[in-house]
Design a protein around this nucleic acid. Structure first.
Lengths: 248, 248
DNA sequence: GCTCGTGTCTCGCTGAGTGAAACATCGGCC
DNA sequence: GGCCGATGTTTCACTCAGCGAGACACGAGC
């Protein structure tokens, strides 16, 4: 990572160095990855701890609960999440599989919500996490409704291969998107995680697709096509509820 | 708010000015509340937008999705949340009422998770939000297991009255805590919100109470005592699952 | 018209913040 | 034991990032 020449930038790049996979990082590690001088990283970390954005723990530093609280105050999609939750609960009760709510951010899905029960399949998605659009059902659904120009420029760039089954051929992907647009649901078969299948439907408010909903489960037990109708209905219901709320 | 004399501190106090109730703030409002000079606030906000911690929106600024993503990476309680979620789903399915998972932070509960369906009661709790310990069922349960010294010092200070029914008399509260310790559940009757009742049980790992679970519903429909057994069982199951995970 | 509140920009001054360097620990390893 | 490389911590003189007074532009509302 290239270190910016402003305090704020440095602090943010420190915070951004942490990830789901590496929640705890040592000072030297932080200094190395951000390119900051050890003394600088030390001073900044100490101050971030003071402000309760970082925690000092035995193995180094980690993002703190204060940051979690701050992040949850981000209103961007909070009304969306709050309106959608009851419907996602319904979806969960009907399927007892993992249920997602996601929005588009550039070439990624950002998951606003992920709920699941005891039998949930191993999947790389997490609330607040990201996945490439083209590798997930939700992503394809969002992409299908995206601006054609955006789609074109995304498909020309190289598409990351997440698993052996990830669709990286622009032609195939393009056909899948058209079909998704047609059917109102998108599918995914082991394209983001081995053994995982998924079906997604769009949440629309007026003309705009603001998010997408999905149900995911393990290959063998879970047959995406069988749940297409439910997922589509739930997504539609969320859209209706949102429209009702925004224009009372 | 008193403005600190460090860039980082100023930035953090800007971010902390936003709340659930006021998700969008104008620049002047921010400058006024933080005590920062308008020019300073402006510069900092611009930079925060650049780093995707703030969004520029028609009415002013608001916390952005980037901050949400960052906050969700905070690992502090993520394993707790992830382990607990399936059990909380069970609890929801059995009660179809609002379900909480909370931890203690000073004299507050911080809600790590709140799930609910269509019929959920109006309640001030939110995922990532706070409530005074003494005004909520979860809070009382956590307080009952807290260090006696902590409890004493909390009870001597003035106890905020959230609703007309909030217990602010140290004597009564103390008796409630003893009873909660005895029964393994704590109750709340319109003490955090009018018309809302709640029952909570502690999540214990070994000797430590790491969190508490609750089910809440509207007065009249929801009888906390009837759900005491379920809530206690769910909380115990979460504790067992956590213990299993931490010592494999 | 005037006025009040808002967001934006410039620019000279200064102290917050930098980073080299030295120091303190802690292991691991022969 | 002594050597080594890694980590975390502190000091200190230099300098540039950041500050804030002030000026400007815009829009809304009597």
């Amino acid at each position: 990572m290239t270190a910016p020449h402003t305090v704020l930038g440095r602090a943010v790049s420190l915070l951004r160095t942490f990830s789901f996979e590496e929640p705890v990082l040592t000072l030297s590690e932080l200094s190395r990855r951000t390119g900051l001088h050890k003394a600088t990283a030390h001073r900044l970390c100490r101050e971030l701890v003071e402000h309760r954005l970082l925690d000092r723990v035995p193995g180094g530093y980690r993002l703190s609960r204060g940051l979690f609280e701050l992040g949850m105050r981000a209103s961007t999609e909070r009304t969306l999440t709050e309106v959608a939750l009851p419907f996602l609960q319904d979806l969960y009760e009907r399927t007892h599989e993992t249920v997602h709510l996601g929005v588009r951010e550039g070439s990624d899905v950002v998951y606003l919500l992920k709920i699941g029960g005891h039998r949930q399949a191993r999947s790389p998605s997490r609330t607040g996490g990201r996945m490439p659009l083209h590798a997930t059902a939700i992503g394809k659904m969002l992409l299908a409704h995206a601006d054609p120009g955006d789609v074109a420029s995304l498909l020309t760039g190289p598409l990351e291969r997440v698993t052996a089954h990830t669709v990286t051929a622009p032609g195939i992907l393009h056909r899948q998107l058209e079909r998704a647009l047609d059917e109102g649901v998108a599918f995914e078969h082991e394209e983001s995680a081995p053994g995982l299948t998924c079906v997604a439907a769009p949440v629309t408010v007026g003309e705009d697709v603001v998010a997408a909903v999905s149900a995911a489960g393990p290959l063998g037990r879970f047959w995406p096509a069988r749940h297409a109708v439910v997922v589509r209905a739930v997504a539609a219901a969320i859209g209706a509820a949102l429209a009702r709320r925004s224009t009372p």
